[in-house]
Design a protein around this nucleic acid. Structure first.
Length: 626
RNA sequence: CGCGGGGUAGAGCAGUGGUAGCUCGUCAGGCUCAUAACCUGAAGGCCGUUGGUUCGAAUCCAACCCCCGCAACCA
């Protein structure tokens, strides 16, 4: 069968604040589990993402803090990278949107779509600030809400009554930059002609078999957008040059400080990061970027040599060494050669299922190739706290970094994956987190492995002249349960049902505990050592394979158990495509002796006092301005 | 207002036409190898409301109610 490559595209976190627990729950962990799973089964997979450096929220935040937006975004990007590494995410490349490579790919996409007639010009009237010498974004205008009378309504939205607004509707509009008379000027911007692309999209979704297995809310959101009819959408804005500049050939707009609208360039990051990864790989491989061959997009490779070299230094990016076999980004982006998995929060669905997909279809049409559109679009709902969205201003937040530091990878990942908000919002409580750790992870999986290994140490490790493990026949019941667990996890993970896939492993843990109980090995061993040894083999077989099944979910737990058993869980050669072959084929534990320094695998968590819980629920002081 | 998602045992969730399931919690019993962990059993739900389709509905249709999101420093 064909060895399809896999690209895992992870949503780009905004560089306007720290990551909170909603980020791993929403898209970072599902992407990571999928990535680890596909790598372990031997697929040729890349995972790309980066920080979204541009956009109004970043600019506003930086302006409030009195910092240049570029500096602020880069600082925030580095904080993001630290958290990514702490979570153990294995990106092929985690970069950001302020790179040369990104800019050039975005510009190339822009030019290509424009030449193909998918971009149109439209005039819009916007407020102009004489004092600031720039167009004021809707958000920079405040005034009185015409609906509720709220005096500090923003130009895009009234925070009091929730009405969507335009600056024109405001009574007594004023600039947030200070006193001055507001005047209007006409600005011409470019629009992506989504109306023209709609037929392509409709045909695309009519033909797409994968679409039917998307989660219900993802399908529904996509169809709702299409049913309402798509309108041209602005892809440039007047932002004083903060953002990705328009391509060469659009000199007037460049001089005006127009940049591509953040949503247009951010989604293109998946493509630009793949190109960057490709160039990076070739750069490392042949130490010369001059012979790179990048097509079908016409990238100016020579101009990017410094950028590739910067990338190779790895100061502003994370790049692991597992980039699959091929260094050609095209092989991950051309239809038929690769399958794509996208991970994001629910707010991002239309940008991917409608707009990004439309852009790719337009590019395909324009270039006469077939770009790989999102095959699997796994958007999660929200992880809430105290019934509300995470919010920094109210202290309603749990900082990801602190949480993982406090409770460790296993407990954190187990909770976030087993309670993942795949189909509806989930409300985080400390009690539920404790229960998940103590009553499920510890009591079931942790306890089974622990009791098995402890028993081994006590009863068998030092015994001599007994049969070797490889000569024993493990109960067929044990084998069949493990077989089924491998088959079920593979299928569920392929369908992005992460919580359920993890529950397959805990079910195997329940079976294992029952097997231990029913065997009465602690009695049998006194009268029938040969029989007990067969039972022991079954238990170690279960423990070893639980460790292997957990490798994508709980890498630490998995590695610890493997370490005790003297096994290594190694990635197979790329191209094997066989999850089940990770299953321990036979028990090669003939040389297993006493396990030294055996410790319980999962720590019991105790409910902390009220005061401390308060600490957990706060983001900590804002030390981001330094 | 509009669009979308959700409303199933105390809690968190599965379940898209055919005798209501899972995990946790609770209660009772068993075991004692194991981190007061494990195993067995039980109690606990008129599947948001009302009406309709059907031999039969948690599941399909209609109306309504409640929660969440789409607009906020936010996935």
């Amino acid at each position: 069968m064909s060895q399809q490559k896999i690209i895992i595209a992870v949503a780009w976190p905004y560089a306007n604040g720290d990551l909170h627990l909603g980020h791993p729950a929403g898209y970072l962990l599902p992407a990571d589990v999928m990535n680890k799973f596909q790598r372990l089964r031997g697929r040729d997979v890349i995972m790309v993402s980066g920080s979204d450096m541009h956009g109004t929220p970043v600019a506003v935040k930086a302006w409030k803090d009195g910092v240049a937006p570029q500096d602020y975004a880069l600082m925030q990007h580095k904080r993001h990278m630290a958290v990514m590494q702490q979570l153990g995410l294995e990106y092929s490349l985690y970069t950001h949107t302020a790179t040369e490579i990104h800019a050039q790919v975005v510009q190339q996409v822009f030019t290509t779509l424009d030449k193909a007639g998918y971009i149109i010009k439209q005039k819009t009237e916007q407020f102009w600030s004489e004092k600031e010498h720039k167009f004021l974004l809707d958000r920079y205008i405040e005034g009185t809400c015409p609906f509720c009378g709220f005096e500090k309504a923003r130009g895009d939205q009234c925070d009091n009554c929730g009405h969507a607004l335009t600056p024109d509707e405001l009574v007594n509009p004023y600039s947030i930059f200070g006193d001055e008379e507001l005047v209007k000027r006409v600005s011409t911007n470019y629009f992506l002609d989504l109306a023209k692309l709609q037929p392509l999209l409709e045909k695309h979704y009519a033909d797409n078999a994968d679409f039917k297995i998307w989660r219900k809310h993802v399908q529904a959101t996509t169809q709702a957008w299409l049913a309402e009819g798509l309108m041209p959408r602005a892809i440039t804005r007047d932002m004083e040059g903060y953002g990705v500049a328009l391509p060469v050939g659009y000199e007037i707009e460049r001089e005006e400080g127009k940049v591509t609208y953040v949503w247009f360039e951010a989604v293109t990051g998946y493509l630009s990061a793949s190109v960057a990864l490709s160039m990076l790989g070739k750069h490392k491989a042949i130490a010369s970027a001059s012979s790179l061959e990048i097509s079908p997009l016409a990238i100016d490779e020579a101009a990017l040599i410094p950028a590739v070299e910067a990338l190779a230094r790895g100061e502003d990016n994370i790049s692991d060494t597992y980039a699959g076999q091929s260094l050609d980004w095209q092989s991950y982006w051309l239809a038929g050669q690769a399958k794509s998995y996208y991970f994001m929060g629910k707010d991002n669905i239309p940008f991917h299922s409608v707009i990004w997909t439309a852009m790719l279809l337009g590019l395909s049409q324009a270039l006469g190739v077939s770009f790989n559109t999102p095959d699997i679009l796994a958007a999660n709902q929200y992880l809430n706290l105290k019934g509300a969205k995470f919010s920094k201003s109210t202290g309603n937040i749990i900082d990801t970094k602190k949480f993982f530091e406090e409770y460790g990878s296993d407990a954190s990942r187990f909770f976030l994956i087993s309670r993942m908000p795949e189909n509806k919002d989930y409300d985080f409580t400390m009690q539920e987190f404790m229960d998940a750790n103590n009553s499920e992870l510890l009591a079931n999986l942790g306890n089974f492995v622990n009791r098995s290994l402890v028993f081994w140490n006590k009863q068998f490790a030092l015994a001599q002249s007994e049969k070797k493990f490889s000569e024993l026949t493990i109960d067929s019941e044990v084998i069949s349960h493990v077989d089924k667990a491998f088959a079920d996890t593979a299928q569920l993970l392929e369908e992005c049902k992460f919580a359920k896939a993890l529950s397959v492993v805990t079910e195997l843990g329940s079976f294992a505990n029952k097997y231990f109980n029913d065997s009465q090995i602690w009695t049998v061993v006194k009268t029938d050592r040969a029989g007990a040894q067969v039972q022991m083999a079954g238990m170690l077989y279960l423990a070893a394979n639980i460790a292997r099944l957990l490798a994508p979910f709980l890498p630490e737990f998995s590695a610890n158990v493997s370490g005790y058993l003297g096994m290594k869980i190694e990635r197979p050669e790329v191209g094997r495509d066989d999850w089940k072959s990770l299953q321990l084929p036979e028990l090669e534990l003939d040389s297993l002796g006493e396990i030294a320094e055996l410790k319980p695998l999962i720590a019991r968590l105790e409910m902390i006092e009220e005061g401390n819980e308060e600490n957990q629920a706060e983001s900590g002081s804002d030390d981001q301005t330094s």
